[in-house]
Write a protein that binds this DNA or RNA. Structure first.
Lengths: 225, 225
DNA sequence: GTCTATAACACGATAGAC
DNA sequence: GTCTATCGTGTTATAGAC
């Protein structure tokens, strides 16, 4: 009761916040490897062992980065989703916002995806631990489609959000490798692929491509269960 | 002179081989993390410091895994490339061989791609350090195309080997995440996507798809320089 | 140049006392 | 919940033997 009410700003919760704040700041400034758990604990004003009481591992602290990012991305998309009605414009707007939001963490993100790539890791975007974040992201792409002036072929309708999410993962992977100034090449990639994506959606209905679409979807269905 | 001749089986080369053999065996049996440098050195019958004399880090030992794999894969493909003439059959044969060769290292490979995913890492398949292995692999896919009874549209010809290599990387990524018994799902993925790949190559020539093909290729061109 | 032996360091993570 | 002390790790350093 009163315990639960005060739980949000309880001492434990304060400590937790201090730890994650210190971690994210140090990660951004010094990168992942260079930031030691000892430094995080010291910066947060707690003992090393205490940091482990709240976060079972250094990697677990990264989940917080994901969660925060997803929230910031959703917020950064609002305007584009409210104003744009073309599918390509909505897609590129959302992807540009994704890159914008992560920009301050570019160097950090590069080292981060090292850990995300391990299939067994809870940090993998395909893992069970990531499913809340993943579902939130897929929901965002459902909104991208729903608000666009376009007739999505029935065959595609249910799966298109997942496919757009997969597409966004590819963009993020590209971005992580992108060393061009200001990550121009990633923005170019977004601007050149978004119209193609819209075109592919429209073409999926053409008679000559129907069976191909069906084939590709059944493969994707098996992959993303 | 005589120094160089005997260099191949010199004491140093023997030690080197002993270390890498011990490392790969322990990696396969116990995984990457569980295998310590101390254990590798002990298994190879050398001092810990000596292992570091030959391999600057634990990760460097993984490059040997790549090199060995590439060679085994090329050998495993010979029969398929000699016998099959259909593009889809050649592709699926080569990809099946790729999975077959790596099968004993499935669990190990899953933890390995953690390191490969880091853009800055020399283990990244896109890195400069990996370019010999990558070029050898791309050359293999050039052979896949050259020996197939198919007319590849001029627009595609120069870039298709790279694209097939990229496709193979996707299959390997899927395989690393595949937990189905015997990795059946990966084999299914190969068998269902290879015919689609052939179909896409044939369709690239159709008038309605020409401009789309050109668009997609210019994107891929920017990506893979 | 090749190799051994041994010690030491900083790190991620854990145990157990308070 | 919080601490201190400690473990096992990758890695480096040193000093020297063949």
């Amino acid at each position: 009761m009163s315990q639960e009410v005060s739980a949000r700003s309880s001492r434990g919760e304060q400590t937790r916040r201090a730890i994650v704040a210190a971690a994210l700041r140090l990660f951004r400034e010094n990168g992942y490897e260079a930031t030691t758990m000892r430094a995080i604990a010291k910066e947060a004003g707690v003992a090393t062992g205490n940091a482990y009481y709240y976060y079972g591992s250094k990697e677990e602290l990264i989940q917080e980065f994901y969660v925060r990012n997803q929230a910031e991305h959703a917020a950064a998309c609002r305007q584009v989703l409210a104003e744009q009605t073309g599918l390509a414009a909505r897609i590129s707007g959302v992807l540009r916002a994704l890159v914008d939001v992560q920009a301050p963490y570019h160097a950090f993100a590069a080292t981060l995806y090292k850990h995300a790539a391990e299939p067994a890791s809870p940090l993998s975007p395909f893992s069970k631990a990531s499913s809340p974040t993943r579902n939130a992201a897929i929901g965002l792409y459902a909104e991208v489609i729903a608000g666009a002036r376009i007739r999505v072929p029935a065959s595609l309708r249910s799966r298109l959000p997942e496919l757009l999410w997969l597409y966004s993962m590819g963009v993020v992977l590209y971005w992580a490798h992108d060393t061009s100034p200001g990550c121009q090449r990633t923005y170019q990639l977004i601007d050149s692929t978004a119209p193609v994506a819209e075109r592919l959606v429209r073409m999926a209905r053409l008679p000559g491509l129907r069976s191909l679409t069906r084939q590709l979807l059944s493969i994707a269905g098996g992959t993303l269960h």
